[in-house]
């Protein structure tokens, strides 16, 4: 592989990252080729020692995704981090599916219950005082506000659990990062 081919495949793999980050990464690898050339190595030698550019790009994207999640906890950064990590193959989704599905189901049920309780509270608060609820006007108002509070609390708990779950997923994936794999895989072929 020539330097141009390597850089082309690397940049292709980095599409979707912020421009500045991708440029910085590309500059790192360009500098590597410069230093290698200065040390008297051929482009093909340097590219072979660097490893598969597609795989390197996936690792760099996963790293960038995890970092972005660390800086801003938004739905898009969470999705970015998780998809980047899935792309890396660090988490085998088929093995994890039986564990992940019930967890997500529970979380979703909790969120829906929270929303339902909140709406019910609002309904009791708005309608209760006029239809002669058993506790009287004050009872209906208190019950309504109480239910809305409970709904908010459940929503907050859901948000907290979700953040914790995503943190745990990223932590797990980083732990199982196969950093050396691309470089070590061709090794046995060379020796054999």
């Amino acid at each position: 592989m020539t330097r141009a081919e390597f850089m082309g495949r690397l940049k292709q793999g980095l599409v979707g990252l912020p421009m500045a980050t991708a440029a910085e990464i590309a500059a790192d690898y360009e500098a590597h080729f410069e230093d290698g050339a200065a040390a008297g190595r051929s482009e093909a030698e340097i590219a072979a020692a660097l490893g598969d550019p597609g795989r390197l790009a996936r690792e760099l994207r996963a790293e960038a995704g995890a970092r972005r999640w660390g800086q801003e906890q938004t739905a898009s950064s969470a999705a970015g981090a998780i998809f980047a990590i899935l792309g890396l193959g660090a988490i085998d989704i088929l093995i994890l599916l039986p564990i992940v599905l019930p967890v997500f189901g529970t979380m979703l049920a909790m969120l829906l219950t929270g929303v339902g309780v909140f709406i019910a509270g609002g309904f009791v608060l708005a309608v209760g005082p006029f239809v002669g609820a058993p506790g009287g006007v004050l009872g209906a108002v208190l019950l309504g506000v109480g239910l809305m509070g409970l709904g908010l609390f459940m929503g907050g708990l859901f948000a907290l659990l979700t953040k914790w779950l995503i943190d745990a997923t990223i932590w797990y994936a980083r732990l199982h990062y196969r950093v050396l794999k691309p470089a070590l895989e061709p090794q046995p072929v060379v020796q054999a």
């Binding site: 990464i25 790192d28 690898y29 590597h32 340097i46 020692a49 660097l50 490893g51 598969d52 550019p53 390197l56 690792e59 760099l60 790293e63 960038a64 995890a66 970092r67 660390g70 980083r174 950093v179 050396l180 691309p182 470089a183 070590l184 090794q187």
Partner: peptide, 17 residues
């Protein structure tokens, strides 16, 4: 230790982060 040279960049970015 026989590591792939390309992997140093993801690692350095991670250590920097």
């Amino acid at each position: 230790i026989d590591m792939g040279e390309g992997t140093i960049y993801p690692l350095m970015r991670r250590m920097q982060a």
